[in-house]
Write a protein that binds this DNA or RNA. Sequence first.
DNA 1: CTTGGCACTCGGTCGTCTGGAGTGCCAGGC
DNA 2: GCCTGGCACTCCAGACGACCGAGTGCCAAG
Lengths: 340, 340
Amino acid sequence: MVEDRRLSVLRAIVEDYVATHEPVGSRSLVERHSLGVSPATIRNDMAALEDEGLIAQPHTSAGRVPTDQGYRVFVDRLSQVKPLSGAEKRAIGSFLDGAVDLDDVMRRSVKLLSQLTKQVALIQYPSLTRSTVRHLELVGLAPTRVLLVLIADTGRVEQRIVDASAPISDDLIGRLRARLLERVVGVRLVDVAGKVADVVEQFEAPERSAVAAIVATLLETVVERHEERVMLAGTANLAAFGEDFNGAVRPVLEALEEQMVLLRLLGESRSGDVLSVRIGHENEVEGLSATSVVTVGYSRGDEVVAQLGVVGPTRMDYPGTMGSVRAVARYVGRILTEQQ
Amino acid sequence: MVEDRRLSVLRAIVEDYVATHEPVGSRSLVERHSLGVSPATIRNDMAALEDEGLIAQPHTSAGRVPTDQGYRVFVDRLSQVKPLSGAEKRAIGSFLDGAVDLDDVMRRSVKLLSQLTKQVALIQYPSLTRSTVRHLELVGLAPTRVLLVLIADTGRVEQRIVDASAPISDDLIGRLRARLLERVVGVRLVDVAGKVADVVEQFEAPERSAVAAIVATLLETVVERHEERVMLAGTANLAAFGEDFNGAVRPVLEALEEQMVLLRLLGESRSGDVLSVRIGHENEVEGLSATSVVTVGYSRGDEVVAQLGVVGPTRMDYPGTMGSVRAVARYVGRILTEQQ
DNA sequence: CTTGGCACTCGGTCGTCTGGAGTGCCAGGC
DNA sequence: GCCTGGCACTCCAGACGACCGAGTGCCAAG
């Protein structure tokens, strides 16, 4: 079929361009891939592909380069996720198994992913709102200060210092701690607010204001979504982007420095645990329109708790990147589930 | 004095080069600074400075550029730390005051510093080993698993999951918790090991192995220095470095990605709370020989607990950078001391 | 010790030229 | 109807050379 060959040509162009980073012409295409036809025929196909908007020429008399749409078609119809090699899998296992706590798991995973893909890797901490309270601790620091520590079942720990204007006795701390514990342990964070709503009322006048301050801080800790952190590694790999630093790399670095942007990036694909690939302009984030973002959710147990992925140039090795992202997500999920 | 003028010339060269990023010649020097002599005289001075190794020419018939040694003399003898403007001081105050916890203080400080200096900023978390134990918590997770949470008086929280092969009852957790608390609260982390050495012996056979596992993990948490974290911001400012990405910026980015390197960078200057400036090759870290590092310690109370600083091109604005670094360190110290 | 003058060096820029890679189109063949 | 070889055309990239200007070092005179 003619149509089939045309797509083969597109695939070949994408593969060559990804490999060489140079516009690919009709001659070299027939040489490197056994397409069984002459360059002239390829040229006709290329003209058609260009009409469809899948490839473009940087200038007349240059080879062709895939467009964002071209990559889209490649990813959707022409490529398969490439599974990792056995060696790579073993490397992942041994690399991640030594992690001592959640921070360590995140740090190791994101570093690993950036090394596997040679791109910038991102990982979002497991969402607090979806998890449950494992423990809550109040520690008196000073007459009017209390440290509130909240431990989620994902292993994440949040701490806040509460400065109540009224003095707080150790006895009060003990009673409040017991009451709160009995209310919130095992409760989903999103439901904590409902559970502790009436606690303040159970305390009398001299103590009430301090209790109110502590409970308010607790609610704040539980509700605030801005606390969803993102960790990042491999920015040095941006070197592969191109030579013109200020043109290409700077906006990317700037975007990556903003926690909010990173969250949006990972948040855009609330697609659960299926791979999401956003190519070039499909990306909503300003400054990243020349990059592609590959993300996937990872799970604890059978619930997706957060996303991880990579950011790289649109001319990336999609099958390989997708394979690495998916593999790391699975391993992270397994570790979180086991460590539970 | 001739000698004096020579140093003035060096100062002028440094200032001009920092401002323009271009080799500075004798003519433009007399034009921009009122030195009261002719270009020819300056040329003689420049030749002398070059003999002393303080300046160099990139090539014949180009202007002069300061050498690392030239910057050294400039910093040591020719410049004064530039205090911040009132507006800047107010900005620091309002920017840092809203911090809710230690992480937040670190995050805000490092971001602020990178914005003030337009360079890459680093901040080290307050050292664990120098601080004391504020609280310790054991939480049972599963029959054989316990979560150990250690809270230092710097506000830092460390958690570890202990997997004892033997079952651990809630009763045991309670007793062990009480005993450990009574031993370690208020004790410096470095002294914890001595305090808990005999705790294991106080438990009998069926419980002893679990206790041993928990205590071992506690010691690990307390001793391990690799846990001293460093946070970093402003990598996008590396754009000011130069155009040749792979030549100049890449090794810097790579070095900055390594926690160990960052720690060394901040650790090299155990100079307490006096500003440390390491210029170019003075820097031990490979890959950063074209950068200068300005660091200073910050305190909680009257004890220096960690370092912060910036990394930038050797052609940085030293007086301004030193002023910003010192100012931010003072504010951070104040906040930590107040929040205590 | 300073200064003006002068010859010299050398990097950066501009215009020109040329080779090569690549294209589009066309006519002929299967 | 599709493929193919041929051919004219386009245009980028690199090489080459000339020129300009900024800057230097040195010297002799003030």
